[in-house]
Design a protein around this nucleic acid. Sequence first.
DNA 1: GATGACAGTGTAAACGTTTTCGTTTAGACT
DNA 2: AGTCTAAACGAAAACGTTTACACTGTCATC
Lengths: 338, 338
Amino acid sequence: MGATIEDVAKAAGVSIATVSRYLNGRTEAVSATTGARIQTAVDRLGYVPNLAARSLKTGRSRLIGVLLANIAHPYWSTVLSGVEEACQRANYSVIVSSASDRADIEHRYLQMFLEQRVDGILFNPAHAEPDLVAAWSALSVPVVTLDRTLPGLPFGLVAMDNARGIGLAVEHLVALGHRRIGFVSWHPRSLSNRQERLKGYLDALAGADIGFDPALIRFAEDGWSDGVDCTVELLVEPDPPTAIISATSMLNLQVLAAIKRCGLRVPEDISVVGYDDSPWDELLDPPLTTVATPARQLGVAAAERLLTALDAGEGTVTGEVRLLPQLVIRESTRQAPP
Amino acid sequence: MGATIEDVAKAAGVSIATVSRYLNGRTEAVSATTGARIQTAVDRLGYVPNLAARSLKTGRSRLIGVLLANIAHPYWSTVLSGVEEACQRANYSVIVSSASDRADIEHRYLQMFLEQRVDGILFNPAHAEPDLVAAWSALSVPVVTLDRTLPGLPFGLVAMDNARGIGLAVEHLVALGHRRIGFVSWHPRSLSNRQERLKGYLDALAGADIGFDPALIRFAEDGWSDGVDCTVELLVEPDPPTAIISATSMLNLQVLAAIKRCGLRVPEDISVVGYDDSPWDELLDPPLTTVATPARQLGVAAAERLLTALDAGEGTVTGEVRLLPQLVIRESTRQAPP
DNA sequence: GATGACAGTGTAAACGTTTTCGTTTAGACT
DNA sequence: AGTCTAAACGAAAACGTTTACACTGTCATC
């Protein structure tokens, strides 16, 4: 308990330099016999290397800071599990924080990351406060932003192809003959991933020669309830949609609940395409047609992007990686009524 | 960038000891004027303290290791967010790992925590391998286990009152006149939280003078599909239950899906009580009566338990804290058929 | 005016590593 | 026997802090 490298050296009858070399498997090899002596000493003493000391000396901590909007949210926790998996594989530890989409909190936590001397940072920025963007841009470690970005941030980005994802949903519904397609998204609208999804909706409509009707779009407050009201609003329009696309997993069930509340049936009266394909989407009633987003892979890809940059000794990451969503057709979509 | 305490000292024209004292707000106060000089130097140089060096010197890292069975699971990610909240409030960072219920992986990650010299550990142990239990018992930092424990572990425990939670469900159904109450739980059965839930079921039945019928119990494999099959099995029994209790959130939707697959309606034909009260449970069709477990509070309570022990300088945490679940009655339960 | 007390500050050792550079040793070659 | 090379190892400095201890001045007290 609390044995240092010096204790090990003493016990093995060698110098601490040799112990260090042995433990790190360095090229200036130690002989097999001393190696064995050191190993037994390590085992006997229960020696555990002190990463703080190593970090201080080498300047690298084997720590990755991960800052997410909301780690309690199923989507983000799945992303996180991918990050964690990739980091563990590369022998990095991840220190995690949840910023609730508040830029000031984000800033504070990033500061904590710097104090811990993390080797790299993964995060998804919230609102664009110019001075914070400036401060972040000066961050001294490699950063990869997840899922969304902010104008002016000189970081790498790993995200879904949001526009394409919604495009898939629209095209599917159009192929089924729908022309009045509702779109329920959520606030704040300004975040890049949401803008992209809206653009995907608009572009796909345009591509199908369908005129855009602003009455078919709603934006709900973040959370588990406002989406119901927004969807109900949509349904009581004079010329209601025959299909609705939910722009994020949090809204899937809210859209379904609203439809039920209005006395309509899915898919007989109205079709629904969900988003993200949570593991329980196929258990819903009816099993939900959704745009499946590879959340876990997003985490893995982002972490690997960061880690390879670290291995290569690059002080910064740039460029953009987009992951392709896929449409999973189940039973919540059906031919449009004539 | 990369300024050390020495740079700050030089810039402010004082010694590094004074800078350190100022930064740590120690009792041997520094005068207001030097304090101001130091602060401007800090700001100008963009000095960021090096926690690795501090940790090395003080022996405390302000790091908490959190090891969970599965951080992608909504329940655990909610617990994690509570932990993170409490730790941030106390200025600790949390380093997190996901062990997939495999004891060998758990062991490896605990080792990594020790190397990082975490000040404390929160984790939920998986299977009881005697040699690992022995190794864990010798851990040199305070540990609190979350949600479940293992015989022989000398750690503090913060968990739900699992038996009482299921008891609430049974009592509610009994009050509605149900006497054949199915119970769907999940593997591995040996984990303490699952044993307690089973015990809660049996005790509550006994308390209501209802004989126990083993045909009414099923254990599903962990995951998002086997629960459906298990529930179907239950429903095709010669004398099927008039109500079913799902023992964990992961099974809620699987039970509902199975019932639907058998052509039965909830609650007309059969009542259902879910578990955990995920935020979307009230959006289901029908809105689910569930045993609400305060997952976030569990995380907060466990972290605070650990942190107060750390503050008090106690090297170990013992004792047990149980959080009380609450029954939330919605529309999936109804009077039993005569 | 000498004496203490005390607030404020500086010096230097220590924390546990990694790593540069230098030393020893053993064997291979003339 | 002498020289050279390479493998194996050791001594010591450095990483950026905290903190015990010593020191300086200022002011109140006798």
